[in-house]
């Protein structure tokens, strides 16, 4: 019963994939090739990272709307500085991750030590980080060395899945660390967590730093596949990362859910665009369908919640 939301998220993913594959086969008269697999995986990976980061803060009963700004800042700084030497690629990747960690540190400190509402703090920092990203790169541009793209996103197959597997490994380790346990404890009952000796404020800051680092990791992969920088390309991640968390069955009241569900949710949302393409729907409607997906998911979750609570 506790696994029900997780099973639901996989059912949504399977259903979405089924519809997509069905449309694809009826249109193209052959099954998906490695090219489609690689393209879907490469599009999904940045969202997978963003969704897992969002999961961590949602588990603490928080929310991070600054995800779009953090990713934009990472992308623009890396795209305007990285060169094709190995040293430069390693250094700027690490700097990129540090940008996310730093941005998360600012969010976390304002929320935990400033005692402010996560929604408003991250809305404000979203504005600040996005503004800084525009300062770094006023027009889409910059460049990412082709070697970096080859290393991060192999064009011959869905190698991006290795990053997803690595991320899931990090997640399973995280859940078993005292930090991970504390994140769940705070989400379930902050007062009880404090009473049992958990340093609530530090754990909250840690959660935002962890989330920010994951956002930047997603932005690095995004930079590698798009070959450049664009300060305005990341706004959709605010909606989609939260939608993936909802589809993944993670409770917005904290303490319940697994990043595995969010990963499934991220893939389901990524399939919306190719699905619409196969269904011959104008791509301009993508936001509407992703939003509708989210509306249906929360409405379903709400109805299921009412049924369950009515029975007990």
């Amino acid at each position: 019963m506790q696994q029900a939301p997780l099973l639901l998220s996989f059912a949504i993913l399977a259903g979405t994939f089924g519809v997509y594959a069905g449309l694809f086969v009826s249109n193209q008269h052959h099954f998906l090739t490695p090219f489609e697999g690689q393209s879907i995986v490469n599009t999904a990976v940045p969202l997978v990272f963003a969704a897992v980061g969002q999961t961590v803060v949602v588990l603490t009963r928080g929310l991070d709307l600054s995800v779009g700004g953090v990713m934009a800042l990472t992308n623009t700084i890396v795209a305007s500085n990285m060169h094709s030497s190995t040293g430069s690629m390693v250094a700027w990747s690490l700097i990129g991750l540090a940008i996310g960690a730093g941005a998360g540190l600012v969010n976390g400190c304002l929320i935990a030590f400033g005692r402010l509402q996560p929604i408003l703090v991250t809305l404000a920092t979203l504005s600040i980080y996005s503004g800084l990203a525009i300062k770094v790169l006023p027009e889409p541009g910059g460049s990412i060395p082709i070697e970096y793209t080859k290393f991060m996103a192999n064009v011959n197959g869905p190698w991006g899945l290795i990053y997803v597997a690595g991320l899931l490994l990090v997640w399973f380790v995280f859940r078993r660390t005292p930090f991970g346990v504390a994140v769940y404890a705070i989400g379930n009952d902050q007062a009880a967590a404090r009473a049992s000796g958990i340093k609530v404020r530090l754990v909250k800051v840690g959660a935002y730093v962890f989330a920010g680092t994951l956002f930047s990791a997603g932005a690095l992969f995004f930079s590698a596949t798009t070959l450049g920088g664009d300060a305005t390309a990341f706004d959709p991640f605010i909606l989609t990362s939260i939608a993936a968390v909802v589809l993944g069955g993670i409770s917005f009241f904290g303490g319940r859910g697994s990043a595995v569900g969010a990963v499934a949710g991220a893939f389901a949302l990524t399939l919306v665009t190719p699905l619409l393409f196969q269904a011959n729907v104008n791509q301009l409607y993508t936001d509407a369908f992703q939003g509708l997906f989210l509306v249906l998911a929360v409405v379903l979750a709400g109805l299921v919640g009412r049924l369950v609570s009515a029975r007990t």
């Binding site: 939260i242 301009l284 939003g291 509708l292 509306v295």
Partner: peptide, 9 residues
């Protein structure tokens, strides 16, 4: 946020 996305699309 979701309805904003719907309105945008």
């Amino acid at each position: 946020l979701a309805m904003g996305g719907v309105a945008q699309g």
